[in-house]
Amino acid sequence: MENRNTTAYFILLGLFSHTRAHQFLFVVVLTIFFTSLLGNALMLLLIHQDHRLHTPMYFLLSQLSLMDVMLASTTVPKMAVGYFTSNQFISLTGCGLQIFFFVSLAGGECFLLAAMSYDRYVAVCHPLRYPILMSWQLCLRMTLGSWSLGVVDGIMQAVSTLSFPYCSTREIDHFFCEAPTLLRLACADTFVFEYVMYTCCVLMILIPFFFILTSYSLILAAVLHMRSTETLRKAFATCSSHLVVVGLFYGAAIFIYMRPKSYRSASHDKVVSAFYTVFTPMLNPLIYSLRNREVKGALRKKLPACCGISTS
C-alpha cells in the first residue's frame, strides 16, 4: 500500500505478440477494422444523400453506424500504433478518455438497439399507425436519450475508475483501458464501485436486452399469424439475423461487466473485448442495412455516379 504509483501513465501489454501466428491474427483484426470503417461510412453516406432513406428506421441505422465507427476507432488505432512502434505507454488522461468514449458508445448502442427493435415492432405489427407511433419527434428523443445515457455512464465510470490509487505495477494486461481490467491494479477496496458498476450494467445492458427480446417475440408472434409463406420466411430471416447480432453484442458485454471479480481472466477479457469492439461493428451494416432492398437500390444508384459511369 505504501508503494503506490504516482506516475501519470500506464503500459498496455496489448493483444498480440510478434510471433508469426499473432502477426497473422493482427492482420486479420486490421482487415476487419478497415472493413467495418468502410461499411459503416458507406451506410452514413448513403443515408445522408438518398432522400428515400430519410425515415426514422434509417436515421436510427445511421446513428448505429456512427457509434460503431467511433467505437472501433477508440481502441484499434492505439493498439496498432503500440504493435508497430512498441510504444505501449498511455497517459492517465488518455486512459480516462478511452474509458469514457468506450463506455459511452457501448452504453449508447445498447439503448439504440432497443429503439431499433421498437421501430421494427411498430413497422411489422402496426404498419398503418407507424407514422404516429414512430414519429420523427419520438425518434429524435430516443436517439438523444441513447447518446445521453451512454455519456452519463461513461463520465461516471471514467472519473470513478481513475480516482483510485494505483500500485507500483503500471502494466495493464489489455489492448486498451477498460474499467474492470484497470481495477485489478487498484491499491484500494473497489467493492463499492464494483457493486455500483454492476447495478449500472443491469440498467444499461439487461433492461434494453429484455426490451429487445420482447419486441422481437411480439414480431414473431404476429408473423406466425400471416398466411404468406414468403413473408414468414423473410421475417424469420430478418429477426434471426438481428437477434444474432444483438446476442453477440450483449453476450460479450455481460461477460465482461457482470462477472464477479474472482472469475475474471485477463486473456479471456481481451479476446471477448476484441470481439465486440471490432467484429460486431463490422456485422452491423451487413445485417441491419446492406441487405435491405432500399439500401441496395441506393447503392446501385450511387456506384455508377462515383465511378463516372452513365446510366442513361
Rank of each mutant, 00 (worst) to 15 (best):
F175H: 15
E230K: 07
Y288V: 03
G150W: 01
T238D: 11
G96I: 04
R184E: 15
R120P: 03
V246H: 00
P281T: 02
G247K: 02
L133S: 01
P56W: 02
Q23D: 14
H22A: 11
R291P: 01
A179V: 12
C110H: 11
L183W: 11
T143Y: 04
T161I: 06
G251H: 03
L303N: 01
S310W: 10
G82Y: 03
A123H: 06
N40G: 08
L97E: 06
S62I: 01
G14D: 06
T277E: 00
S289T: 15
C306W: 14
R300V: 01
I256N: 00
L243D: 00
K302H: 09
I287T: 12
A221H: 11
H268Q: 13
E178H: 11
T277P: 00
C239N: 10
C139R: 07
K270A: 10
V196Q: 04
V124M: 07
L61P: 00
F275P: 03
R4I: 15
V271H: 09
S217P: 00
L66R: 12
S73T: 13
A123V: 05
A72E: 12
V76T: 13
V151T: 05
V245C: 09
I172P: 10
M156K: 10
S262K: 08
L71F: 14
E194I: 01
A274Q: 06
L218G: 00
P165Q: 11
F84G: 01
T161R: 04
S117N: 10
H268W: 15
G96T: 08
M116I: 13
T181Q: 15
F10D: 01
S262C: 04
T6F: 05
Y216L: 00
P131G: 07
I132L: 08
A186I: 12
V69N: 14
I155R: 11
M258N: 07
S160N: 13
T19G: 15
S65V: 10
T311W: 04
V271Q: 11
T229W: 09
V278D: 05
S104L: 02
A72W: 05
T169M: 08
G96H: 01
T7C: 03
M70A: 15
V246Q: 02
A8Q: 14
L224K: 14
V152M: 10
A72L: 09
G297L: 14
F26Y: 14
F24I: 14
I287A: 08
